[in-house]
Design a protein around this nucleic acid. Structure first.
Lengths: 290, 290
DNA sequence: TTAATTGTGTAATTATATTGACAGGTAGAT
DNA sequence: ATCTACCTGTCAATATAATTACACAATTAA
């Protein structure tokens, strides 16, 4: 295949591992708004990516071009080809794949789910939930079902980074009574229960509520039976072209909540984060940056 | 209407009668292959239209720009606006909340991430990855890092429902050598490594590759250093308005893969699913439906 | 036809972009 | 801990682009 048949984007991706830190930074800026971001001057591009101009020139060389202008010329050529080819305009999400490709169908569907979910989600309820989770006067326990345990665990991991008094309740429901004992009135229980709802979760919710525990429930559009014991409920749309259900939208809400909780309690969480960074840094297990 | 709302093409057409012979010649060339023809140097454009460079500069002035570069900047801006799909932008997501509410900002951002990720994701690579994972002649092991273990676990749970020979490798890296022993040439290793990349994962990848294991890597836009040992790489955009990174897009890709793997091997997975349903039904732990 | 006006290119100048040389810094190796 | 190799930015040089000044050509009006 002649060299000019490979797009700049392709070359960047193919050789991504050979790129250095500054070059990757640059590569991302180019890909982010491809190909327009690469059509200005080398200086503009460099500033945009917060690297020096020689870095840009060097990368162009590395990708196999004679220099930056040559790379830019190819970007223009690609653009011309793209614009004049009406076929590519109908490609939706994944380029070079038909509309019927699973990636495109999935994307359409997930966006739809997100839109629909948010339409029925009250911003006030959201804010109140954030309030409950940011309040450190009470502890927070997190519990999930067979498939939703992963979500519970994800939420726990992040919440724990921001505040004290967060517990992840084990998968195994035989140990749940023990956890129940440590939950006091006013404490918060975050529960995940999706389609193929689990009896145990409902019983757990019932008993927790009886103890005065405030429940935040993440469930699907049809609603877990545990809902009747919950103070806050988040219904995600979860249907996708697959035999299983999608967790993407639920994860979206979780992340939004985590982000909001954090900005709410930034002063405390900042210190915690720094401590954590230190801890991980010192164990030598993890590098702080690359 | 502010000046910059009028396209260059519009300005040319509006003032066409005021243009001189050489300028019309130039105008036609610009419009002919709009806007790409105007994105090169002033010299290139002049030659292309068989006029002198000052003619180009003068026309830019005549059209109301400060000079040629200013006109070119607008061409780029127009192009950017055309290319970035207006589909989801400026839609308010959460009703009853201002645009600046975290839910709306998060939604915009995540959609953007998804779009950008898919734009640079090759459908062919995707299909080949699905192929690798659906093939039951080899085993599949799944491993993740500190924060990405959840994703690994999610992927494992679903893949396991569809096929035999799937292992989830523990979080604790001290046990990894044992897992390595059971990986044979041709086996598949699915690895997750996001920002704050982990040394151990890279070493693991290196050793696995040396054993002839084929690696599928899920990483972020900046790229884990383990990438150089991977056969397939998926770069997700993960930045959101939060201190932490988003896993939503990665989860999207995982689900799409899971869905594709399943339809690829429906006959086998159907039986497995039924068995699983039975098992869960019989243990009494879970209800099949509600 | 000739003078005035306007249009256009050439050449010189200026501004800007691009590249090359170097040196400080950082990560990985021994 | 020290060395080495390799990034990566600053600064200088070079090349290229853009503009200006100017002269000549073309067109139009007297």
């Amino acid at each position: 295949m002649p060299l000019h048949d490979i797009t700049v984007a392709q070359r960047i991706q193919d050789g991504f591992d050979l790129l250095t830190r500054a070059e990757r930074q640059l590569a991302n800026v180019i890909l982010e708004n491809y190909p327009v971001s690469g059509l200005g001057s080398i200086t503009a591009l460099a500033e945009n990516a917060d690297v020096s101009t020689p870095t840009v020139a060097r990368m162009a060389r590395k990708l196999g071009f004679g220099g930056f202008p040559e790379m830019q010329a190819q970007l223009r050529a690609e653009l011309e080809a793209t614009i004049s080819d009406p076929l590519t305009k109908h490609d939706k999400w994944a380029t070079g794949a038909p509309d019927t490709h699973i990636l495109n169908r999935f994307a359409d569907n997930v966006i739809d789910n997100l839109r629909n979910t948010l339409k029925h989600l009250s911003a006030t309820e959201f804010d109140e939930t954030v309030e409950m989770l940011a309040n450190t006067e009470h502890t927070v326990a997190v519990v999930g079902g067979r498939l939703s345990h992963t979500l519970a665990s994800y939420f726990f991991t992040h919440l724990q980074m921001m505040r004290d008094g967060v517990t992840l309740i084990e998968r195994n429901s035989s140990s749940w009574p023990h956890y129940l004992l440590s939950l006091k009135e006013g404490d918060v229980l975050v529960m995940f229960d999706m389609r193929r709802y689990e009896q145990d979760l409902m019983r757990f919710a019932e008993m927790a509520q009886a103890r005065g525990v405030r429940i935040i429930l993440f469930t699907d559009q049809w609603g877990s039976p545990a809902g009747k014991f919950a103070e806050k409920k988040f219904h995600s749309r979860i249907e996708v072209p697959s035999t299983w259900d999608s967790s993407v939208v639920t994860m979206f809400i979780l992340e939004a909540i985590i982000s909001a909780v954090q900005s709410q309690s930034w002063e405390q969480s900042k210190d915690r984060m720094e401590e954590l960074e230190d801890l991980f840094g010192k164990t030598g297990l993890f590098r702080k940056f690359v």
